[in-house]
Design a protein around this nucleic acid. Structure first.
Lengths: 148, 148
DNA sequence: TATTGTTATACTCTATAACTATA
DNA sequence: TATAGTTATAGAGTATAACAATA
């Protein structure tokens, strides 16, 4: 870890400020996550699962563990509880009898849609931006978060 | 909840897209939070506490519960564990003998600085933006997340 | 009376290690 | 042998209710 290396890693002030604000945004959102769950009592990780599970797109358990950056044994219990609540279901995967894929139930799809509705509009004052500014923000975020 | 109300709440496509991307950003960051904790094994909520606790600024327990949107009884256990790890300390508050204020220890300050360093630069490709774009992003985020 | 923080309790989240079934 | 998922276990996070000390 030489001086040269540290100099090479030095970033400009705008990037530092941008990162400060992105971190702050993350924690502001984290604080308001209970509101997104609404009356349903979803936990943070359950909100994350619901966000990841798109209707009509089965997801193997192992892929969920990867997407959550958590251990596979964790996913077992998590899916147990969400399945017991009727939000999703395990199904056999064609081609490999070891894997189980997850699908949203109709109730799960409804709750997911409700959560997404709760998330949009709170708590940031997006309306305070002009139409041009919103377009610029979308363009920048597309570059950062990507399309996938 | 009349039809008029629902029409009044309708938002433009740019705002919808912006919200989709902001939500995605949140969950992308959430996934990478274990990396921010580095070798220290900090949990998500402990990272949140460290982010909130600025060196030299004592915080009452009740204010921490409010900032985390969680119950006061939760804060008791959380602070117990972080205090046991030597990251922060309870102190009596002048003027009101009911309240206890929290302060970072030197070890807590060091770990906080290390966490902030880990957070900046990962996992978003901020370097892919031009200097002008970074300035624009900072300006928009300042408006959204505010200064506080 | 109201507020700050704690305790007791119960449930959820999380990782580690050992295991089964399948590839 | 390696991989997908489960079980057992232990510790951390979380809310509810009841409580003590203070305002």
């Amino acid at each position: 870890m030489s001086v040269q290396w540290r100099v090479a890693k030095r970033v400009d002030p705008e990037s530092c400020r941008a990162w400060q604000l992105l971190m702050k945004f993350y924690f502001v959102q984290r604080r308001h996550l209970p509101e997104w769950a609404g009356e349903s009592g979803l936990s943070q990780v359950q909100c994350h699962v619901l966000h990841l599970m798109e209707p009509g797109r089965p997801v193997p358990m192992s892929r969920l563990a990867e997407a959550l950056s958590c251990d596979a044994s964790n996913v077992t219990g998590l899916v147990d509880r969400m399945e017991a609540r009727g939000l999703l279901a395990r199904r056999a995967a064609p081609g490999d009898r070891r894997v189980k894929v997850l699908e949203l139930t109709p109730a799960g799809e409804r709750l997911r849609a409700e959560m997404l509705r709760h998330m949009t509009g709170q708590p940031l004052p997006l309306a305070s931006l002009t139409a041009d500014e919103r377009r610029a923000l979308v363009g920048l975020l597309e570059r950062l978060v990507g399309e996938d």
